[in-house]
């Protein structure tokens, strides 16, 4: 057995897993606040990464400026999307809203391909060194940054929902919209805020991932990969989303290890999470942390 490779893959899995966790959190945020299953979550990463890339390469902005501008853009984008597209759908059947978000996903993918092409574009180098050595493992600084940023975001979410006025109001909205309104909370405003935060943070994840692997249409795959993580965690649990993301990240890499060492199927990396998903749904239909709603037939 190749212990060093195994260790390397576990570390990769954890790093990628925290990023999955962040995107899964964003997905869950929208679902909890506004009961919308957002199939366009992956496109938030895609758009964020392309916009940031474009600002950095086209206008030669320093990274921080381009990055901040991207976040501002995504905040506005999230709000506009919610107000113009999702708000008129309030009260429509769940399946109609899902069709709309699937439509948005396809639409944004097409637009991004049209604007930026289908080829992978590298980010301008942000770190002067290629890799750092941690306990004998090779880690790209971008990966480290990804990990640190992801953890910061998670801490930020925890703080936001525990202590901020807006965070409490969003939790109240998720608990019961009528109760929230009776407290003076504008539910529509909370929907818009949840989309804004979700778009911003997803874009951040997109930029981080783009820095490591370059920007390409493949980024929107994140949106699909996040599904096993979210469902594993239980769809409406923020903590569950993080744990689910971590598990999926590690699982992917372990699957690659097993595949590379013994099976040689060549595609286990990509589909292992979905096997895990099916398995888990059979054992725990509401995920590891989800609210159980018993439906009797």
């Amino acid at each position: 057995m190749n212990v060093e490779l195994l260790l390397q893959l576990v570390v990769n899995g954890l790093i990628l897993g925290t990023l999955y966790g962040v995107v899964a959190m964003c997905f869950t945020l929208i679902y909890k606040a506004s009961q919308v299953v957002n199939f366009a979550q992956g496109e938030f990463l895609l758009i964020g990464a392309w916009v940031c890339w474009w600002l950095l390469t086209e206008f030669q902005l320093p990274f921080y400026a381009g990055f901040l501008l991207t976040l501002v853009f995504m905040m506005v984008f999230g709000i506009v999307l919610q107000v113009l597209v999702l708000r008129p759908m309030i009260g429509e059947p769940v399946i109609s809203v899902i069709m709309v978000t699937i439509g948005l996903s396809i639409f944004f993918q097409a637009i991004m391909k049209w604007l930026f092409g289908v080829f992978t574009q590298p980010f301008p180098p942000i770190f002067p060194i290629r890799s750092v050595d941690i306990f004998g493992l090779n880690v790209q600084p971008a990966y480290l940054m990804s990990m640190v940023i992801s953890l910061l975001i998670m801490a930020g979410f925890a703080w936001f929902f525990k202590y901020s006025r807006l965070g409490l109001a969003m939790r109240a909205t998720a608990f019961n919209q009528q109760v929230a309104q009776s407290l003076g909370i504008s539910v529509k405003q909370m929907f818009a805020v949840s989309w804004a935060i979700s778009a911003m943070v997803s874009a951040l994840a997109g930029v981080v991932f783009g820095i490591v692997n370059g920007v390409s249409p493949a980024l929107s795959f994140f949106g699909i990969k996040v599904f096993p993580a979210v469902i594993l965690g239980g769809l409406d649990s923020i903590v569950g989303a993080v744990v689910g993301g971590l598990i999926i990240g590690v699982l992917e890499n372990l699957a690659e290890y097993v595949d590379g060492q013994w099976l040689n199927l060549g595609n286990l990396y990509a589909i292992a999470p979905f096997y895990a998903l099916v398995l888990i749904l059979m054992i725990k239909p509401y995920g590891l942390f989800g609210t159980e709603k018993i439906e009797r037939l």
């Binding site: 006025r165 409490l168 109001a169 939790r171 109240a172 019961n176 009528q178 109760v179 009776s182």
Partner: peptide, 22 residues
């Protein structure tokens, strides 16, 4: 409202802070 309708998955203090949302 009828039936109390407190936010069950929050602590009492969080509920009180919500009351002061406006």
């Amino acid at each position: 409202m009828e039936g109390r309708r407190i936010v069950e998955d929050m602590t009492p203090i969080e509920n009180l802070r919500l009351g002061a949302y406006t």
